[in-house]
Amino acid sequence: NITNLCPFDEVFNATRFASVYAWNRKRISNCVADYSVLYNLAPFFTFKCYGVSPTKLNDLCFTNVYADSFVIRGDEVRQIAPGQTGNIADYNYKLPDDFTGCVIAWNSNKLDSKVSGNYNYLYRLFRKSNLKPFERDISTEIYQAGNKPCNGVAGFNCYFPLRSYSFRPTYGVGHQPYRVVVLSFELLHAPATVCGPKKST
């Protein structure tokens, strides 16, 4: 009989979030998941669920729940959905087409922007091929755009693959930082360890 609440607040209220290319994953298990708490945590810009209804979450049980978190800019949030393409979905964080879970995003301009520009958040701009779903690539190998090998040196047709967002508070919403948490629900042929409040007794 599990009584402890799932530590969603640790994920959502973390002081620092990860850069999207090096997104963070927390496995959540053996706890009571009260998803209604999430609705009250922040004024969400996005709370979209796929393959599951957000209002039914509190009635369900899962084997595992994974919470992935990272920062992107406002106009990239739409890429965090099944079947999307674009720089983020292709080279940084890719959801599977049959994704079961929820994408939660909110504006973090007050936390993640600086007047002089916050350069701490990076994204991958160049990659030889698209990522597979939930693949994480943290390599910093020089990207070869031409025929000549780069031998690890940046220059003509040889690019450092990561680029930094420079978040400034005066930017338009599309270029402001957004914190994203992706909850993916895993149903294996194994005992369910993460249940809503109704199912945990």
Results as ranks from 00 to 15, higher is better:
61 C>L: 07
69 S>D: 04
4 N>A: 13
194 V>G: 11
169 P>E: 02
138 I>P: 07
101 G>W: 02
107 N>P: 06
9 D>A: 14
193 T>W: 11
26 K>C: 07
15 T>F: 07
173 V>A: 11
43 P>C: 06
101 G>E: 00
87 N>W: 13
139 S>I: 05
199 K>R: 14
22 A>I: 06
57 L>S: 09
1 N>Y: 10
121 Y>R: 02
182 V>F: 01
90 D>N: 15
116 S>T: 13
26 K>D: 07
27 R>W: 09
29 S>F: 10
172 G>T: 00
93 Y>R: 02
120 N>S: 12
185 F>A: 06
48 K>N: 11
83 G>N: 12
70 F>Q: 00
101 G>Q: 01
11 V>Q: 05
136 R>I: 06
85 T>M: 09
105 A>I: 07
45 F>H: 15
196 G>M: 11
187 L>H: 12
192 A>H: 14
123 Y>V: 15
9 D>F: 10
144 Q>Y: 03
152 G>K: 10
167 F>R: 02
86 G>V: 01
59 D>H: 13
92 N>K: 03
107 N>A: 05
181 V>Q: 02
194 V>Y: 11
193 T>S: 15
181 V>T: 05
71 V>R: 02
36 S>P: 07
97 D>W: 10
101 G>K: 02
118 N>P: 06
92 N>A: 03
151 N>G: 14
40 N>P: 10
113 S>K: 01
51 G>M: 06
72 I>A: 04
170 T>K: 06
56 K>Y: 08
120 N>H: 13
183 L>S: 01
125 L>H: 06
102 C>I: 06
183 L>W: 05
63 T>F: 08
8 F>M: 09
142 I>Y: 07
114 K>H: 12
1 N>A: 11
5 L>E: 12
30 N>H: 12
30 N>R: 09
84 Q>K: 12
117 G>F: 03
14 A>V: 08
106 W>I: 06
28 I>G: 06
154 A>V: 11
47 F>P: 08
138 I>M: 13
44 F>V: 14
144 Q>M: 08
74 G>V: 02
16 R>S: 15
165 Y>H: 01
9 D>I: 11
139 S>P: 01
119 Y>R: 10
198 K>Q: 13
73 R>N: 06
78 R>T: 11
158 C>N: 01
64 N>L: 11
192 A>C: 11
91 Y>V: 05
114 K>I: 08
179 R>H: 02
177 P>H: 01
148 K>A: 13
118 N>D: 06
173 V>L: 15
104 I>C: 09
81 A>E: 09
189 H>S: 15
151 N>Q: 12
155 G>W: 05
14 A>G: 09
105 A>M: 06
125 L>P: 15
151 N>C: 08
50 Y>E: 01
115 V>N: 10
64 N>D: 11
53 S>K: 13
72 I>S: 02
48 K>G: 05
117 G>T: 03
89 A>M: 05
122 L>W: 08
194 V>D: 11
157 N>R: 03
178 Y>L: 07
50 Y>C: 02
139 S>Y: 05
22 A>C: 09
131 L>V: 10
101 G>P: 00
188 L>D: 15
85 T>Y: 09
150 C>A: 00
198 K>V: 12
99 F>E: 00
123 Y>M: 15
146 G>A: 06
169 P>A: 05
104 I>D: 00
160 F>W: 12
126 F>V: 06
133 P>M: 04
197 P>W: 15
179 R>D: 00
71 V>H: 01
165 Y>L: 01
60 L>I: 12
115 V>S: 10
33 A>Q: 08
44 F>C: 08
29 S>Q: 13
54 P>E: 14
110 K>F: 07
34 D>V: 07
89 A>C: 06
70 F>D: 00
177 P>Q: 01
129 S>H: 12
187 L>A: 13
145 A>H: 02
170 T>C: 03
97 D>A: 12
195 C>G: 08
106 W>Q: 05
163 R>E: 14
154 A>K: 14
109 N>P: 01
53 S>H: 14
21 Y>K: 01
135 E>N: 06
132 K>S: 11
161 P>G: 04
132 K>G: 11
150 C>T: 00
82 P>A: 03
186 E>Y: 08
163 R>S: 15
77 V>H: 04
167 F>K: 00
164 S>T: 09
159 Y>H: 05
153 V>H: 14
171 Y>P: 00
100 T>S: 10
133 P>C: 04
196 G>Q: 11
19 S>R: 03
135 E>C: 05
200 S>F: 14
65 V>R: 10
171 Y>G: 00
59 D>M: 10
97 D>L: 13
182 V>N: 00
110 K>Y: 08
23 W>Y: 09
169 P>D: 02
133 P>F: 06
39 Y>A: 15
28 I>F: 15
104 I>L: 11
154 A>N: 10
127 R>K: 07
188 L>F: 12
179 R>L: 00
152 G>V: 05
27 R>V: 14
164 S>L: 03
33 A>H: 08
76 E>K: 03
32 V>N: 09
39 Y>T: 14
7 P>K: 14
68 D>H: 05
145 A>M: 06
52 V>D: 06
82 P>V: 05
98 D>L: 08
155 G>E: 06
74 G>E: 02
161 P>M: 04
166 S>W: 05
167 F>C: 00
138 I>F: 07
154 A>I: 10
176 Q>K: 02
27 R>H: 13
138 I>T: 15
97 D>N: 13
42 A>H: 14
196 G>C: 09
182 V>K: 01
93 Y>L: 02
133 P>K: 05
159 Y>E: 00
183 L>T: 02
151 N>R: 12
11 V>K: 05
8 F>R: 04
94 K>I: 02
103 V>M: 05
4 N>D: 13
143 Y>T: 02
149 P>N: 12
36 S>V: 06
1 N>C: 07
76 E>V: 03
195 C>A: 08
128 K>P: 12
19 S>Q: 04
53 S>G: 10
106 W>N: 01
146 G>D: 04
97 D>I: 13
69 S>P: 01
127 R>T: 02
75 D>G: 14
179 R>S: 00
44 F>Y: 14
85 T>L: 07
159 Y>L: 00
72 I>Y: 01
149 P>L: 10
178 Y>M: 09
108 S>W: 02
74 G>P: 01
110 K>H: 12
162 L>Q: 03
129 S>K: 14
84 Q>V: 11
131 L>E: 00
22 A>M: 11
138 I>N: 11
7 P>T: 12
61 C>P: 10
42 A>Q: 15
169 P>L: 04
133 P>G: 08
108 S>R: 03
152 G>H: 09
200 S>E: 14
17 F>A: 04
35 Y>E: 09
105 A>S: 14
120 N>Q: 14
178 Y>V: 10
90 D>A: 10
152 G>W: 05
8 F>A: 05
118 N>Y: 04
166 S>P: 03
65 V>L: 14
116 S>H: 12
30 N>P: 09
102 C>Q: 04
80 I>P: 01
197 P>L: 15
73 R>M: 06
101 G>I: 02
19 S>D: 04
201 T>Q: 14
4 N>F: 08
56 K>L: 10
147 N>S: 08
163 R>F: 15
37 V>S: 15
63 T>E: 13
136 R>M: 07
91 Y>N: 08
131 L>Q: 02
108 S>N: 03
49 C>N: 02
142 I>F: 06
137 D>C: 04
116 S>E: 15
6 C>H: 06
164 S>K: 08
111 L>H: 11
23 W>L: 02
25 R>D: 00
82 P>Y: 02
2 I>C: 07
159 Y>N: 01
62 F>D: 07
13 N>V: 06
119 Y>L: 07
185 F>C: 06
81 A>G: 09
70 F>R: 02
17 F>V: 06
164 S>I: 03
80 I>N: 00
43 P>F: 08
177 P>C: 02
147 N>K: 06
164 S>N: 09
184 S>N: 13
79 Q>R: 05
130 N>R: 15
